[in-house]
C-alpha cells in the first residue's frame, strides 16, 4: 500500500500541484464549496426524516435532492483526488485520512441501501421511530466523514 501512495506522491501532476502557488488553494476552495452543496443535499432529507411528518412527503424531497447529492459527491471526488495524490505520503501516515475513508464507505453503503429505502418508501409504510433513527444515523455518519477530513491538515 505504501508503494502505491509513494507512486501517487511522485506523479508529475502531484509534483506540479505541490509546486504551484494557486493549484492547491483552488482545489481546496472548490472542495469546500462542493462540501457545502453536498451537506445541504444530505441535510434537507435527513432533517425531514428526523423532523415532523407534515407537508411534502419525504420521498419527493429525497428525489429532488438526489441530483444535488450526486453532483456534490462527484465534485468532492474530483477535487479530493488532486489533494490525495499531491499529499499522498501525508495522507498515508494520517490516521484521520484512513478513518475518513472507512467512514465514507460505511456512509455510502448506508445511504444507498437503508436510507434510500426508507426515504423513498410510500408515506406511512415506515414507522416514525425508524425514520428518525435513519435520519440521525445518516447525519452522524457524514459528520464522521467531514470532521476527521478537516483534522488531516491540522495534525500531521
Amino acid at each position: 500500500m505504501l508503494d502505491i501512495f509513494d507512486w501517487m506522491n511522485n506523479l508529475g501532476v502531484s509534483v506540479a500541484i505541490r509546486e504551484s502557488v494557486w493549484m492547491s488553494p483552488l482545489v481546496n476552495v472548490a472542495h469546500l464549496v462542493a462540501l457545502v452543496m453536498f451537506v445541504g443535499a444530505v441535510l434537507i432529507v435527513d432533517l425531514k426524516l428526523v423532523g415532523n411528518d407534515e407537508g411534502t412527503p419525504v420521498a419527493a424531497i429525497a428525489r429532488g435532492a438526489e441530483k444535488w447529492f450526486l453532483w456534490g459527491f462527484f465534485l468532492l471526488f474530483v477535487t479530493g483526488v488532486p489533494q490525495l495524490i499531491s499529499n499522498a505520503l501525508r495522507e498515508y501516515y494520517s490516521v484521520f485520512f484512513w478513518f475518513k475513508m472507512a467512514m465514507m464507505v460505511v456512509a455510502l453503503i448506508f445511504t444507498f441501501t437503508i436510507r434510500r429505502r426508507v426515504s423513498l418508501a410510500a408515506e406511512g409504510t415506515v414507522a416514525a421511530g425508524t425514520r428518525k433513527l435513519v435520519g440521525a444515523v445518516s447525519i452522524l455518519l457524514w459528520a464522521s466523514v467531514a470532521i476527521p477530513a478537516r483534522l488531516i491538515g491540522l495534525f500531521t
Binding site: 462540501l35 445541504g40 411534502t56 419527493a60 444535488w68
Partner: peptide
C-alpha cells in the same frame, strides 16, 4: 458553516427555480 450554507443553498436553489421544486 456547511450546515448553515448548505441549507441556505438548498433554499436559494428553490428561489432561483432549479432545485427542491416539489416543496412550496
Amino acid at each position: 458553516l456547511t450546515m448553515f450554507a448548505g441549507l441556505i443553498l438548498m433554499m436559494d436553489l428553490r428561489l432561483i427555480g432549479v432545485g427542491n421544486m416539489q416543496t412550496p
